Amino acid sequence: MLSTMQDVPLTVTRILTHGMTIHGKSQVTTWTGEPEPQRRSFAEVGRRATQLAHALRDELGVVGDQRVATLMWNNAEHIEAYLAIPSMGAVLHTLNLRLPAEQLIWIVKHADDKVVLVNGSLLPLLAPLLPHLTSIEHVVVVGPGDRSVLDGAVPQVHDYEELIAGRPTDYDWPELDERQAAAMCYTSGTTGDPKGVVYSHRSIYLHSMQVNMAESMGLSDKDTTLVVVPQFHVNAWGLPHATFMTGVNMLMPDRFLQPAPLADMIEREKPTHAAAVPTIWQGLLAEVTANPRDLTSMARVTIGGAACPPALMEAYDKLGVRLCHAWGMTETSPLGTMANPPAGLTEEQEWPYRITQGRFPAGVEARLVGPGGDHLPWDGESAGELEVRGPWI
C-alpha cells in the first residue's frame, strides 16, 4: 500500500525560493576591509541569483548539467552562485584555491568546466593557469582586481555586475530530478589524483535540514553565523544552503581570514555561531589575549578538519564560547558526527564526550570492518576500515 503524501522533489531551487521569500529580511554581510561591510538581504541575494542564472543561460550559453566553476572567497556573490547554478540545472564546481597549480589544472579538465567565476583578488592565481584550461570558455570577474593579467586570454572575460545588470529577477526554474547533480568538490585527501564527489539536490536538502537540527548546529533565524570555513571546502560544511533554508544571517569574511580582522568582525557584528578549523581559533585566541575583544556573542563554535586540543576548548570556555567537535569528509557532505554530549550530565561528565569526534545524527550509520571483512566492536581500541552510509553520504 502506498501513502497519500505528495512526492515533491527536494531541490536547491526550493531552498532558494523559500529563503528569498519567507526569510527575505535575513542578511548576508560581507567584510570588505572598509568602514562599512557590504550588506544584502536574502531577498536581494535571491533576485541577484536569478539574474545570474539568466546571464549564464542567455549570455554564456550554459545548458543542461554543464559545470560552472568558482574560484572565490566567502562572500555574497559566492552565495548567489551557490543558489543560481544548481537551480538552473547546471552543476556548481568550487575550486580549492589552496591546491597546487597542477592539481587545479587537472581538476578543471576532469570536470570539464565551461565557465569560471573568480574574485578579482584571485586573478594572479587564475591567469597563469588559463592557457592550460582548454575547456574554459568564459571568465567572470567578481569585484576589484588587476584585470590586465587577463590580457590575451583565450576565454571571453566578463564583469560580474555588468553581466547580471538589467536581467529579469524571475526565472522559470526547471523541475529537476532530486537525484540530479547539484554541486561537486574534489578531495585531495587521498592517493593519486584528486577524487570528485558529486552532491545531489536531495543530499544537499537533507544535509541542510540536519545541520539546522538541535542535535547538530541548532541554528535558527535568530542566529548569525560567521562562516570562516571556505566555500570551496565541502560547501562550507553545508552552511550556505542550511542558513538560506532557515533564515540564519551569514557573516562572510571574504579574504580577511587573519586573527585581527576576525576579532573585529565578531566584536562589531556579534555572530552567535561560527565554523572553522582549530588553527583559526588558536590564532584568534592569541589575538584577543594580546588585544582584548568582546567575543561573548559567539556562544557556539563548530570546529572540524582536525582534532581540537582540550586546552583550546578550556580556554574558550573561560571566554564564554563553547567549541563543539564535528567530523566529516568531502564524501559525507560533510556532516558525519557532532560532539554534543547527552542530556543530564554535569560539566565534568560532559568532557569525555566533548573531546571525541561525536555521535552520529539520525540518518547516518557506520560500522568498523577488519581486514577480513569481519565487523569489529566499537570499543575504542579496535582499528579497521570505517564504512559510512546515509542520505547525504
Rank of each mutant, 00 (worst) to 15 (best):
F42M: 07
K195E: 01
D193M: 07
L368S: 08
S121C: 13
L71Y: 11
H375E: 14
N119P: 03
G384Q: 10
T134N: 13
M245V: 03
A55Q: 08
S220H: 07
F42L: 08
T187K: 03
D294S: 13
E77G: 02
V68P: 01
A339N: 05
L257C: 06
A275P: 01
L125H: 12
G192E: 06
P310E: 12
N291A: 13
V364K: 02
M245N: 02
H201C: 01
Y171T: 12
P240Y: 05
A214Q: 13
L176W: 00
M338P: 00
V388H: 07
V139N: 09
M213T: 06
T11V: 14
L125E: 09
R293V: 05
H241N: 10
L130T: 11
T21S: 15
T94W: 00
E365I: 00
L122E: 14
G145E: 07
Y186H: 14
T4E: 12
T94R: 05
I22M: 08
E34R: 15
T296E: 10
N75Y: 01
R268I: 00
R367C: 10
V154W: 03
W31E: 10
K222R: 14
R255N: 02
G344T: 10
A383E: 14
K195D: 01
M338T: 13
G336M: 14
R98A: 13
M329D: 04
P168F: 05
W73C: 06
Y82I: 03
H132M: 12
G320S: 11
P35H: 13
M1W: 08
R67Q: 09
H201G: 01
M250G: 05
A111C: 12
A183L: 12
F244E: 05
A236P: 05
L2M: 14
P155L: 11
I85V: 15
W351H: 04
S26I: 03
G46T: 09
A84C: 11
T296G: 06
Q258K: 04
L123C: 10
V229Y: 00
G196F: 00
T225G: 02
V62H: 01
L284C: 02
L226W: 02
V288W: 06
Y160I: 11
L92S: 10
L117N: 10
H273L: 01
M265W: 03
V62Y: 00
T30Q: 12
V248I: 06
M1D: 13
L285W: 07
N212C: 05
A84K: 11
S216N: 09
G247W: 00
A153L: 09
V154D: 13
Q27S: 12
Q6T: 14
R354M: 07
K222N: 11
A81C: 15
T13K: 15
R167P: 02
D112G: 09
L97D: 15
K222D: 13
D223E: 08
P9R: 12
T70L: 07
A343R: 10
P309V: 06
Y171S: 12
G46H: 08
K114H: 07
E137G: 13
V364S: 01
G363F: 04
T332V: 10
Y186K: 05
D112E: 15
A236F: 00
Y186D: 12
V234S: 12
G390R: 13
P194M: 03
